[in-house]
Write a protein that binds this DNA or RNA. Structure first.
Lengths: 194, 194, 194, 194
DNA sequence: AATGAATGAGAGTTCATTCAT
DNA sequence: CATGAATGAACTCTCATTCAT
């Protein structure tokens, strides 16, 4: 049922019919229900599978040593490049998580939301570590910082992957590392940073 | 058909039935089709109406004079506060634009996408003006900067309005101006800015 | 949806498809769901409607005066004749209540069972009245008597209506009043009665 | 496939799935179809097996000598006690025969009906013998008498076993012999009998 | 003998849309 | 302008049966 992810990504959850899914898999409708109890469960399974893969990517970016501002930018850019490359290789998953997962039924939406909560948690670990190492100013409120950070990353990622029209086949003029560097510079120095 | 916006925002496009819409409006099913040719057109009308209102808010923020870095932060914070307040007063519209508009049929999605393109255009004007006034370093690529900026704003806005679970009734612990200031500081100075 | 009763009676609940029902009614499948929320509710409605009609027949038989044994037999025979004639005129209803209502889903079965409980209650009133008038020996246990009585009546009714093979179109060689009289004599005097 | 009888009795024929049957038997779906050509045949086999056991119980009651009225009552009560006890020990079979076998497909119903025809035939032998012995008044119509008798017995049996709600686990407050005696007295003397 | 994955016809139900009044 | 009954195509899901192994 691998093709299902592409179908969900392209047509959305509701517009993807079980008949489309089984056609793409080359099996009969009945066979689908031998493997999955429902369409909903299929979507949730795909999302949860993707959640674990995504989590791993971010956790690899865990910061180990202190360094200069440029070190920070490069370190962040490296993590973002990994993330962008993973996302590019898993466009259908990302389309479901970033875009199409929304107009679905509550249990599927919940699975999507939990994925972003997990994503944010993984980042919170990274930022807390950076503060601990004295690389970032301690803030009275870590959460709001991470909120903003994650909003920045997912927003940029979404635009880079799918463009302004949310086109699954969109190709950004920027490479993943160009985009990652620009984003990391913005992240660390804001609009003013050269 | 004002209640329809709330229904779309709460239940999503596909889960909102025409029967729900007419019940909330107190008219008959037949009457709906006297005013609207289809469910799709209703959604698109609502989105386009909101698009104009949203555009006006951003255009009011058009920057007029140069100033210090703190002036820039305050100026940006003021615009963001306006935006956040408008969004808070139009939660159902924003839910449709930021979240629920996604998993729908192509023509509705197109209307949503066009709204964000208009939003980005309006911001691009603001940033270009700031560069013109010498407040921001000219960049080889204005688009990428604005892309990142808009990704930041819409991402922060979405989290502030609806929280991690995309709950239409979510109430952030931060006021609109707190959130706007924190975002503006991040925007101008990045994570390093005090 | 009057034809539905006949369909249920002839084919049984599960073998009667909504498509059969709407064909017999000359409407579209969608129209069915305008009038009934489900197939189950249709069956329950038909049963409950029949329950009330059946109850009325029995309650008309309420005994008013005392009399001889032959009076009792005639009085009982009159009630049974009414019952048998009603049943004959409502064969499809009776088939559903006596036979086909069994192999259905719990809520439908419950509706059938409640009908027979109501039937028994109505008879209990009649027997209690006869004891009160001194026509029947008071019994330590009215319930068991009425149980046996109702078992006798429904059993005889079922055989007379549908024969040994439960054929909805069965025609007994006995008229309703012949059958009623024989049953009433058995009821009052048992096998020994002449 | 012994558990199948219980499943049919509890859930009815249509609601009992082959997957339920094989689960209860601890074999695979494929194995079922090695032993039985169809679900229908399984049900019919179970019914026909039960039919023979039931027939034996009644034939044991074959009356041998003449006697007083009280002898007749006791003799009949003894047979009924045997019947009730057999039924109690074979509740699932009786549930299928008396209740759940009804709303099924024609071939299964036919098997059930044939069982009751056999049951009636066996009783007819008993009654004819009693008339022959001068214990019962000869009747112009033996059939109608036996009809009524069998209706009485099966109706009483059904209520005693399963109660008004057709509950397979129902427990009557009366013992089998109490119920048998009361029924036999009614059979011989009717409501008037002391 | 036995498995369990695979099948496909068909079930009940939904719902945007239409239309006679 | 307004109604609400009527439509029918399409959907998800079920399950007795089959079949390669």
């Amino acid at each position: 049922m691998k093709g299902a992810l592409e179908l969900f990504a392209r047509k959305g959850y509701h517009s993807t019919k079980i008949s489309d899914v089984v056609k793409s898999a080359g099996v009969s409708q009945g066979t689908f229900y031998w493997y999955f109890p429902s369409k909903e469960k299929l979507a949730i399974d795909l999302i949860e599978e993707g959640r674990e893969k995504l989590r791993k990517v971010i956790e690899q970016g865990y910061r180990k040593h202190a360094g200069t501002v440029d070190d920070m930018i490069h370190s962040s850019a490296r993590l973002l490049t990994d993330l962008f490359e993973f996302a590019d290789e898993n466009r259908y998953l990302m389309a479901l998580l970033l875009i199409k997962g929304q107009g679905t039924d509550p249990p599927v939406q919940e699975a999507v939301s939990q994925t972003w909560i997990a994503f944010e948690e993984a980042f919170k670990g990274n930022v807390a570590r950076a503060i601990e190492l004295g690389m970032l100013p301690g803030s009275k409120d870590l959460n709001i910082r991470v909120n903003i950070l994650v909003a920045l990353f997912t927003g940029v990622l979404s635009k880079w992957l799918f463009g302004p029209m949310h086109d699954v086949d969109f190709q950004s003029p920027y490479t993943s590392s160009e985009m990652a560097e620009e984003t990391a510079r913005f992240e660390i120095r804001g609009l003013l940073g050269s």
